[in-house]
Design a protein around this nucleic acid. Structure first.
Lengths: 208, 208
DNA sequence: GACAACATACCAACCAGTCGGTATGTTTGG
DNA sequence: CCAAACATACCGACTGGTTGGTATGTTGTC
């Protein structure tokens, strides 16, 4: 049964918006283009969204939901050691850096950069998406720190946020070169940073 | 003497463009706004630039020139030790993270993210700006590596680029929160990464 | 007087948002 | 049970302000 995977018009619009905005940016993406891509009309668009800004907020929330499920289902959670889970997360992020920049790039990172002064509502939705996603890493980081870097002076929250910052920066350089390899190379520095952080007390506790 | 700091019309336009684009993005910045801000007319604008895209390329090159001079004159070059110079660069980057995001944010990073698929010419000018700036760090990084991390498996070029990526990412999170402190906190992770990289052989050469 | 450096007036295309309308449910009163 | 009343989902032509770009005029300078 369950014959129809019937995607709602609203979701078709949001999927198309996600795709086009990641390619062209929010401002340069025309509502008509989104409608054409989604196979719906402008009437349908404005039936579901008050204006372009409201659609942007909805798209950011939709992005959070989609990527949230994606990462929740990823295999790195299965490791026993919290450090392995965290490194597994980074490896997973590296593994999905394939194709053109628009394919692996982050909708909310791109968008918040563009509209942070133009739309407080979209900015907030993007900020929530980034920081809530970072928050999902905090338990593993905190546990890993307790095991391997007890005395180090960084907070798990801060490191979780830095992983996002490093990845967002990797995306920017990748857009500049047009190559996924650039992003991968940058992300490998992030991995090395985490390795070094959690390797420190295997030698001695860093102090002075 | 030197009574007149007479800024050329072209530079007035480019300065205004830099300011406005950093606030609103390239696409959302109107040529009329740039002209108003610069105190010139549209005729002057199109006298100096063939079209908006050509202005974007010129602005990216202008940004390279301005920031290039700015960093060349910064005091971190005076350190004797190359690692201190490199860490001094990062500290300098941290020190200038003041005010609103639009004040400390990078024109070429913002712009390349937005137009990488729309304008190959602007994208290239932005990419050159980022990677040429990174290149200025390579001699110090290479010298520091030779002194403190001889066997580590990263290239100086790659690390130089990662400093840019980490900073660009820090800018994105700062735009999300609206706070300079966010960028500072992220940049401090970058500093710690470099410290750890170059501290490694004080204990032993990392290997397996 | 010729040419660069502007200024002013204007245009045509583009695009977010509107609006009158249709078609297909869903609810409710008798 | 049925029909009126209402609600939801959607269509697509139209509009009016915006904006990149142009065409032409004016001024200063070598």
């Amino acid at each position: 049964m369950n014959e129809k995977p019937k995607i709602s018009t609203r979701d078709k619009i949001l999927n198309s918006a996600l795709m086009l905005v990641r390619q062209k940016g929010f401002g340069a993406t025309r509502i008509d283009d989104i409608c054409a891509e989604a196979g719906v009309t402008k009437g349908a668009f404005f039936h579901h969204f008050k204006d372009k800004e409201a659609m942007g907020v909805a798209a950011a929330n939709y992005w959070s939901a989609v990527t949230g499920g994606f990462f929740a289902a990823a295999p790195y959670h299965l490791h026993d050691d919290p450090m392995d889970r965290f490194l597994g997360y980074i490896d997973f992020r590296i593994a999905i850096l394939q194709g053109k920049p628009a394919d692996f790039t982050c909708f909310v990172g791109t968008t918040v950069q563009e509209i942070h002064e133009a739309s407080a509502a979209i900015k907030q939705a993007c900020a929530d998406s980034i920081f809530n996603h970072a928050e999902t890493l905090v338990p593993d980081i905190a546990a890993a720190k307790a095991l391997y870097a007890l005395e180090a002076n960084f907070s798990p929250e801060s490191l979780a946020q830095f992983t996002q910052a490093a990845l967002q920066g990797a995306f920017i350089l990748a857009k500049a070169t047009g190559k996924a390899e650039t992003a991968i190379e940058m992300a490998q520095h992030l991995r090395r940073y985490v390795e070094l952080l959690f390797a420190s007390n295997e030698h001695e506790s860093t102090q002075h």
